[in-house]
Design a protein around this nucleic acid. Structure first.
Lengths: 243, 243
DNA sequence: CGCCAGGTTGATTTCGCTCAAGCAATGTGG
DNA sequence: CCACATTGCTTGAGCGAAATCAACCTGGCG
């Protein structure tokens, strides 16, 4: 359950697809001229606070969502109420395309973890763009392929690797985006709670806590709230190659 | 390791995209006229025997593959040698599109489980078709979206459900394609070994054997080689709703 | 101040893995 | 045609990683 479902929105600063730096990293980079103008017209920008929901699993898909800034968690819940954190989405990434193409409702719930600015592209315009510009579809195909690849890797990881190894993997993927290097040591500030980490690794919060203290007593990492200190990247890398 | 990697091929009977019944269930159903003619020209048909490899993980992607008849297993192996069966592909389904769109090599190995006839569509032609006909790309986007959805469901299942429940799920999904109803009881002939079932559920062959005998002593199912008898579908359905 | 969600720690249990042995069916070569 | 290897399957014994249940701590906040 997201911390807050209130519809409080920070007033977004003025954005435009023409000036958006993120656009060049995204699928929309293939658009020019009239196509880009259509995108601009179909866009709505909304600012979300931490804990606010961007869209909810099962709701009809309104369009796709571009993260201009911030971090968004995608959660999936099954009928029995079990839930996992499918993945994190960062600035420059597009959300909800899976649901747009697949039809039906959203397959997961999206929740902003930190203050985030997100543009929403309305379905009709997107449909039109895709039919006008095959290159856009190809970009989405590429994106979706990589996501599928990542999902399959994640299945394989879950069945074959220990929680400790998976946690090491997670920290290593987070370091690029949230880490600051201070000489030899590396400091990262986690964008999420331990419960979220547990949901991401397909385990329980207690297990995360235990694994963290085990790694701390081996001096591989040092946690303090959401601050993680990694004295030697070398040691952390050794965690994922146990042989 | 596939049973056989010999390049022995049964002579395929003459096929054509124009007469292919499977085409209407597939992405290619949106093609007409010159596009369809291009598809026909880019097609090569190959017949595979059980255990033969259609393509291997890591190899460069030659194009996409359409299953005209048969059943194909898609396996994925990680660096440490752990392997899972990602999914099964049946007649009318297209394989290798993920790898085509994502670039790089094939992300998994495809192996025919039963005698199968598979058409290969060469990359260049596919690229051209996608640029000429945006609707084709949309069909692939839809397909890929569903696959991603299935992969995420599978992650959720693996972490939250017991092997017994997952096995019940598997039998229920197989019943539509491989089951024959005999009055009240249902008989299905599995297209795969128990080892494959284990790989599909992310577990070990021993665990599958144990789970099967547990379910047999509860009279939910009855196995005899690859023949499974389900006296009451009701009972099997109860397995997946334990409350 | 007390509440509460998030986090930690401990004790116990359990599910599934590992290792190991044995069996049946199939295939192979002498 | 038999001896032997191979492959798939089953069963047993023991173990271990992680889940569960439960208590307790901590910091933020109304």
């Amino acid at each position: 359950m997201p911390r807050s479902q209130r519809t409080y929105h920070r007033p977004p600063k003025q954005l435009s697809c023409y000036t958006c730096q993120r656009r060049h990293e995204s699928e929309w980079s293939v658009l020019t001229g009239e196509d880009l103008a259509l995108l601009e017209r179909a866009r709505t920008t909304i600012a979300y606070g931490p804990g606010q929901m961007v869209f909810a699993q099962g709701n009809p898909c309104r369009g796709v969502h571009c993260v201009e800034s911030g971090t968004v968690a995608l959660r999936k819940t099954d009928a029995a109420g079990n839930s996992i954190l499918v993945r994190l989405a960062h600035s420059g990434q597009t959300l909800g395309y899976r649901d747009f193409f697949g039809g039906g409702g959203y397959g997961c719930t999206a929740e902003a973890l930190v203050p985030s600015t997100i543009c929403e592209i309305e379905s009709g315009a997107l449909q039109q763009l895709l039919l006008q510009n095959p290159a856009l579809g190809l970009r989405f195909l590429e994106h979706l392929s990589h996501d599928l690849d990542a999902a399959e890797d994640s299945i394989l990881q879950n069945v074959s690797l220990s929680v400790r190894t998976r946690l090491a993997h997670l920290l290593l993927t987070l370091k690029d985006r949230y880490g600051v290097s201070e000489g030899e040591t590396l400091v990262l500030s986690l964008p999420m709670t331990r419960q979220d980490m547990a949901a991401l690794l397909g385990t329980r919060p207690e297990t995360i806590a235990r694994t963290i203290s085990a790694m701390e007593s081996d001096a591989v990492v040092s946690f303090s709230g959401r601050q993680v200190t990694i004295p030697s990247l070398e040691n952390l890398l050794n965690e994922i190659e146990p042989n």
